[in-house]
Amino acid sequence: MRGAAPLGSLGVACGAAAAVLLPVVTANQALLSWAFLVLLYTALAQSWNLLGGFGGQVNLGHAAFFGLGALVTRMVWLGGAPVVLALAAGTGAATAAGVLIGAPSLRLRGPYFAIGTLAIAEILRITTGNVLPDVSSLPARDLAGYALTPRYYLAVFAAAVVTGGAWWLTRSRFGRGLAAVREDETAAEAIGVGAFRHKLGAFALSSGFAGMTGGIFAYYHVSFYPAFVFSPVWTFDPLVIVYLGGVGTVWGPLAGAVFFVVVQEALSLQVGEPHLLVFGLLFLVVVIAAPGGLVEALRAVRPGARAPAHMGSPPAA
């Protein structure tokens, strides 16, 4: 539809090829870890974006699904199942939880939805910390055979699938219905779009992908406290990434994740975690003055391109 579409497809193909070939052309583990993190954050941020950006529902309990996916995957995998099966279990558990938690919480309006989901995630975090207080570490046999490359490819897969999901939302019937619900629920109902069903569908997709990402994190990380995967940072980091990159856009989460990881790495040696300050200030700038984020800023450089539909209108009048 857009004039630049062939160029865009070419870019996507090159990017995908680069991501797939990276472990082949380099054995640099630091670089690979870095790319892994970018992909993991892309997948997690995109999963938040499916509901928060495309659906307009600000979910502050995303960590609950990341955590559930991580926990279930870890348990099934360490229990001896193949990792792919464990990931499927984790994804399934998070999706099911998404439906169970989404159905009542989507009845809440606006800020109550945001606060309610945050409360649910906190309940899960505290309870997990109480029930499973001990650190989860890989047994020696797994540690000996630990390799980054398969983890990396799972992250490539996750980022690709979730981004594909976002792309599908921009052109499928379901995605267009969801956009209508985001823009005006009453008017959407009046043309035959079942608002609740669409929001719940997006919630399930979003939490399922968050769970898959959590599962990959659990496969990647050597040792962590079970409560850690439910920490609010797994909600707030993707939220910041999505807004920095461009909320409600297909490529925003990727742009945001690259920026996020680069800045974090660049400033990680400084005292007092100044990257938090950078993200906080930029987040404010985006929310107040540039609701399109990085993606729109890049697009503005390319004249004639149409602005993407993003969530709500800029707050400033």
Binding site: P111, L239, G272, G280, L281, L284
Partner: peptide
């Protein structure tokens, strides 16, 4: 001057940004 829903949602987002900044400043 924003309409109710937008005002609430954007106030949450701005407040969230402020909380990140204040936390970071306090850490530093």
């Amino acid at each position: 001057s924003a309409p109710g829903e937008t005002k609430l949602r954007n106030s949450i987002l701005i407040g969230f940004g402020v909380s990140l900044v204040l936390q970071a400043l306090a850490l530093i």
